[in-house]
Design a protein around this nucleic acid. Sequence first.
DNA 1: CTTAGGG
DNA 2: CCCTAAG
Length: 406
Amino acid sequence: MGPFGIDTTPDFSDTFAGFKSGSVDESLGHSMEDKMSDMKHFLMDPNHDNTAVDSFLGLGMENMGLSSKMEEFSHGFDFSFLPDYGGLNSCSTQDVEAGLKFEILDGFLDGVDEVEDIYASHDLSSIETEVKKKVSELDGDPYGLMNLSSESFSPGISGSIGLSEWSKETVPHAESQNVSSEKVKDSLDSNESEDDKKPLSTFLGSWVKRGKNRKKNLINTACRRLDSSRERMSCVSYDFRPRKGPMKKYINISAENTFSDDQLASSESEDDISVTKTSRNRSDRRKHQRMWTVDEVMKLVDGIAHFGVGKWTDIKNLFFHSAAHRTPVDIRDKWRNLLKASYNDKHNYREAEEKRKSVGRSIPKEILHRVRELASLHPYPFSKSSCFVHDSSRSRSTSRKKKKRS
DNA sequence: CTTAGGG
DNA sequence: CCCTAAG
């Protein structure tokens, strides 16, 4: 048993360590194809002996109280903390595989993304050391299998979703035992270097205990101001955001055009779409308008199912802690938009339907459904349309309250 | 820092 | 997405 309650099985850890370092290698110009396909086969082979994975993760079926349902599902993994998308038994293998493909690809792309950042933030001499560090970390890491993501085993969207089904998840589970699996799941998801380097204690501390530093409001504000103004002034060559973490900077160097851009563009259609496609520098597209994937939306909805509306930081830490972008504010904004979308969808079915068809990247109606249900479950201040107020005497004050409060 | 709101 | 104000 490792520190995370994970049984480390050497053969698999080798596999995954190789897998991860493979992705790093790829970013240095080697081919990722073979590693990728290996992984995919491993994950998707229906005949694969999953008990090995189970025991490896310490999340075997015997431990999770999921019995017969799990048998249909080729990948035994602990989903008990996750909302269940319509029940595992409604999950066709096609769905599973599609989901897997997507997740894997997602993880890979995130990895590429990160490496791109490394590229950007280091001069070439330090790239090597960076990579070395990462690889050695993985080799020596007792939980090197952190790279295995529960997301990769996600059932994905499937069939109809009953609110009762997936809202009955157990929050306490998520708090206690699934911290480790979360850690597990996130590492592959995005291969965040920052998180990989952090000891678990740091990671836990970052989201378990909050609300300590309350003093430096003014200073922070001032710093932020300075930063933002500096960003504005230096829009030419680089964009440095201290808040994103030590390694998270976006510096435009010519080398960036080598592979990562094309790779990203070709592999994931809806990842980075620059708003201003000015032919000058494509790399500043990273800053704005990162398209939300369906998967992300699902994560968001799950998060809200867990914590309720308003706990944006918690949701971020649990479900998006690996996502370099997506601040709690972003998540909240997305939820806001989702509500709007679901609201519109509810009103005009046809238009929404056609829109959905014409626009490839719009949200599946299942998700909007869930959004609506969640919205009614935990009302959100403004979305809870004060269109109609029941109490006439209150009506003026409430609407005014929404408008402005001073 | 975290959240709510408006732009 | 960004920015700001408020706890």
